[in-house]
């Protein structure tokens, strides 16, 4: 297999109604597998959140990362995703999250660093268009002069690669520190979370509503790679809902690394 270019693929866009955290986890697994199987064309999915969530990485320890009592008090659902990386604290409207489901050929023979840089090059351009000088910061961050903007994670499944990213639009840092157990050595990674009440690199640096930032990002992707409006198919949604019931809503999965 030789490496494919973005332009070799017909990119689809899914940007639909808000979904529950567990359904988002399941959709990532299902849509990656659908691309791997050749049932779905490569796709960009922009997430909308129906409820607050803590999303922990595939290999993170639930009790080491999350203060479950505080999370319950705030009504925050804790879910585990299928990719590695660190914990994210999400409230609807506070982050911008997207997934790219791509054929493995797009990152064939690339190092992990090269693959991360490739998958987010369009976002770096979109941020530049919005007046933010940002760059890919290995291993898996997007950074700006005002600090970390986003964290990325990839997972390879069969003939596809999942690349998903959460960007901080306007995060309640005080609440984040209540529900996530962030060690002192990790705090430096999270911008100025220890001192600031909010971590809002996208809101403060663009002065734009979240929806406008998303619209600009989608337009940048469209102009670079082409993009066709698509929907989650009914059989994909059925698979995802079944996967929520079987896996993502269960403590056996969420506490799989206790």
């Amino acid at each position: 297999m030789s490496r494919s270019a973005w332009s070799d693929h017909s990119w689809q866009l899914i940007h639909t109604a808000p979904q529950s955290p567990a359904l988002h986890m399941a959709l990532d697994e299902v849509l990656t597998d659908e691309v791997a199987a050749g049932h779905r064309m490569p796709t960009l999915r922009v997430w909308e959140w129906a409820a607050p969530a803590i999303v922990i990485g595939r290999f993170q320890s639930l009790r080491n990362e999350v203060d479950s009592v505080a999370a319950r008090r705030h009504g925050i659902e804790v879910v585990r995703r299928i990719s590695g990386g660190g914990a994210m604290f999400i409230e609807p409207g506070n982050t911008i999250t997207y997934s790219i489901y791509a054929p493995l050929s797009l990152v064939e023979d690339l190092s992990f660093q090269e693959a991360y840089a490739l998958m987010d090059a369009w976002v770096i351009e979109a941020l530049a268009d919005l007046g933010i000088k940002a760059w890919y910061q290995p291993l898996n961050d997007i950074a700006s002069e005002a600090g970390k903007i986003a964290g990325a994670a990839q997972a390879r499944r069969g003939n596809a690669v999942l690349h998903h990213v959460t960007m901080a639009y306007d995060i309640d840092a005080a609440k984040m520190l209540e529900v996530l157990r962030i060690g002192r050595e990790k705090l430096s990674d999270k911008g100025t979370a220890s001192a600031a009440k909010r971590v809002d690199p996208l809101r403060s640096q663009t002065g734009l509503p979240r929806e406008a930032v998303i619209a600009r990002m989608i337009e940048t992707f469209r102009s670079r790679h082409g993009l066709h409006l698509d929907l989650i198919r009914s059989n994909e949604m059925e698979q995802a809902e079944a996967l929520v019931k079987r896996k993502f809503a269960h403590q056996a999965w969420t506490a799989e690394v206790p």
Binding site: R58, F59, L139, V257
Partner: peptide, 15 residues
């Protein structure tokens, strides 16, 4: 023994 962290490992069964 339980390994954990915010690293990346493929396939995930390697954990």
């Amino acid at each position: 023994v339980q390994l954990s962290g915010d690293f990346f490992l493929e396939p995930d069964s390697a954990l």
